[in-house]
Design a protein around this nucleic acid. Sequence first.
DNA 1: ATGACCGATGATATAACATAACATCAGTAT
DNA 2: ATACTGATGTTATGTTATATCATCGGTCAT
Lengths: 138, 138
Amino acid sequence: MNAAHHHDAPKLSRNQSEILSCLRNSGEPLSAYAILDRVRKSGISHPPTVYRALNDLMKKGMVHRLESRSAFVACGHGACDGKFAFAICRACDKVVEILLADKDQALLLGLAPDEISPEQVTVEIAGLCNDCHPSRLA
Amino acid sequence: MNAAHHHDAPKLSRNQSEILSCLRNSGEPLSAYAILDRVRKSGISHPPTVYRALNDLMKKGMVHRLESRSAFVACGHGACDGKFAFAICRACDKVVEILLADKDQALLLGLAPDEISPEQVTVEIAGLCNDCHPSRLA
DNA sequence: ATGACCGATGATATAACATAACATCAGTAT
DNA sequence: ATACTGATGTTATGTTATATCATCGGTCAT
Ligand SMILES: [Zn+2]
Ligand SMILES: [Zn+2]
Ligand SMILES: [Zn+2]
Ligand SMILES: [Zn+2]
């Protein structure tokens, strides 16, 4: 039932495992310092330790960074390779990771002008989730 | 010769004008603190002053924020309304603002899942510009 | 005019996010 | 045992952003 059972889990260091678990358990985007608060009990106590693990996990595609929030989130699919977008509720910060179809990815890269050859695309869609929608109020 | 002659220029406060000019003259994305350094001679001397003006200018669509760089850039088209993307050279930080066709904008908003009604989309494409491309080296 | 009001700007202080640089440790090759 | 190497711990600092309160300048009722 837990992530260690997945065949696609590369070997992670203790720090990386702790921080990935933290993000998976939280279910919401967390800042590096919010992560730090939650893993102090596990013996992680300095910002660079958190940022190092986050950078490693991002390289593996298991954690993504929400640029518009300076926050980090576990990949919604275990791991993925840059072909994703995020939808984010601006009221409650709920995040949904969207896998991009190849054609959408291609379309996005195709937006780049001639003078810049595209490598990677960041897409973050802000809006309101159903729970936060005004029509749903009281 | 100055911005006040443009018909599309809404009335800006002195601070807003200074900071917009600074960004337009720089031609590259600047952090809020880089802006602050450049407008000290004009009497602007505290971060909140810069951030206030930037937020006002962003509301007017005349300045955009590069989320992936925590930097600000003057709108490449005078002003625009959320229908844009950025292409950014990861080596030299050159930025090109791309106007999105309505259909592209619609496609992007359409990526949002049912549980989040989309309002605004951020697209930042990272790559290498011609000047920084390896094939062009030496 | 006077003073109440109000929105814009100035200024101080601090919060939040991120990394540079160096120390220490554990594993392994010799 | 010793030297090397890569990962982790630790200190210090740099960078980005905002909360809060003070002050100023114009509007308007008296
Ligand atoms: Zn993912
Ligand atoms: Zn919500
Ligand atoms: Zn624009
Ligand atoms: Zn370049």
